[in-house]
């Protein structure tokens, strides 16, 4: 007896997602595989002379993890810088964005002019990061307006060299990243909160919960999926931090390379000498770090009590 089979529409589904897979294969997977492949070669230019590619095994990785004379392992130092710069920007970014999202979606507050505020907080994100850094560079330079104000108000007789101190350079980078991204996060979180059933908020209120309790007992637990998504995407972006510190410190990550991020380090090998071997090895390390951190964040935030 032949069983009648229904018409399958699945093939159309596959057909429609095919372009994505082709694009992914060509523009993401293949370059990634090539990067890993390249990291096992000596392959760079000295002046106009091409050196290599010669297979050298894991030499590039060994070089990356060899401590210098003072005992510092450079790549770990730069990974640390990157994390500090990311966390410094991401914590205020997520806290402020969460607060704003709660305020904007609160049916009790009913804030007027929401559209206006939402547009304004999103605006910094629309400016090119490098232009934004140039702006800050000019603002905070020794002869820039900020220093002129500081001197005019008598807070300091000599200009404050914002780009010579570790703390000020890092603070500037963190605040720029915060300014650029908190609007984006706010909008994401608002979407998340609006997706929560309003009945739950009302029920909590009838049960006598105050707004803090509502935030921690109702909003946050139900917002977890979106929050995890936000944190992980922010972290992937943060690990690839480049344009802001690169432009702000003129590519040097100074003082004492304390604001050199991993990608800036990678760029040092690429610019001028096209060192695909070392740059490839650094990329692979960044890939591994990103993977591990994403897993950790995912596990901690989705942990069931």
């Amino acid at each position: 007896m032949k069983k009648h089979r229904g018409i399958s529409y699945a093939k159309w589904g596959y057909l429609f997602i095919l372009p994505f897979f082709i694009a992914y294969l060509l523009f993401s997977f293949l370059p990634q595989a090539l990067t890993i492949y390249n990291s096992f070669f000596d392959n760079y230019r000295q002046g106009l002379t091409q050196i290599g590619p010669t297979f050298v095994g894991v030499k590039n990785y060994i070089k990356l993890f060899t401590p210098d004379k003072t005992g510092t392992i450079d790549i770990l130092k730069y990974a640390g810088n990157t994390l500090i710069l990311w966390v410094g920007g991401a914590i205020p970014q997520i806290v402020i964005a969460l607060l704003l999202a709660v305020f904007f979606t609160s049916y009790r507050l009913k804030i007027k002019g929401q559209q206006f505020f939402k547009t304004v907080i999103y605006m910094p994100n629309l400016i090119m990061a490098s232009a934004f850094s140039m702006l800050f560079f000019t603002l905070f330079s020794n002869v820039g307006p900020v220093n002129q104000l500081i001197q005019a108000w008598g807070w300091s007789d000599v200009p404050i060299d914002f780009f010579a101190k570790k703390v000020t350079v890092r603070t500037l980078i963190c605040s720029m990243n915060f300014l650029m991204w908190f609007g984006n996060t706010t909008i994401l979180l608002m979407a998340g909160i609006m997706g929560i059933d309003q009945n739950l908020f009302e029920a909590a209120e009838i049960d006598g919960a105050n707004s803090v309790q509502v935030l921690f007992r109702v909003t946050l637990p139900l917002l977890t999926p979106i929050l995890v998504y936000t944190v992980i995407t922010a972290m992937i972006g943060g690990l690839q931090m480049f344009d802001v510190p690169q432009v702000l410190t003129n590519g040097a990550g100074n003082p004492n390379r304390t604001s050199m991020t991993l990608i800036m380090y990678l760029n040092n090998y690429l610019g001028g000498s096209k060192n695909y071997g070392m740059a490839g090895a650094i990329s692979v390390i960044i890939f591994i770090i990103t993977g591990i951190l994403s897993l950790i964040v995912f596990r901690t935030l989705t942990k069931k009590d």
Binding site: Y44, A164, K166, N268, S273
Partner: peptide, 30 residues
């Protein structure tokens, strides 16, 4: 670039030189 930081007192002489060497080797591994 690196010696300036020593002149400013932001890094020690050794750190300034170490950073200089790093910058050289990043561009010219040989």
């Amino acid at each position: 670039e690196n010696w300036r930081q020593f002149c400013q007192g932001e890094v020690t002489e050794d750190e300034a030189l170490a950073n200089f060497y790093k910058a050289i080797n990043e561009r010219f591994p040989d």
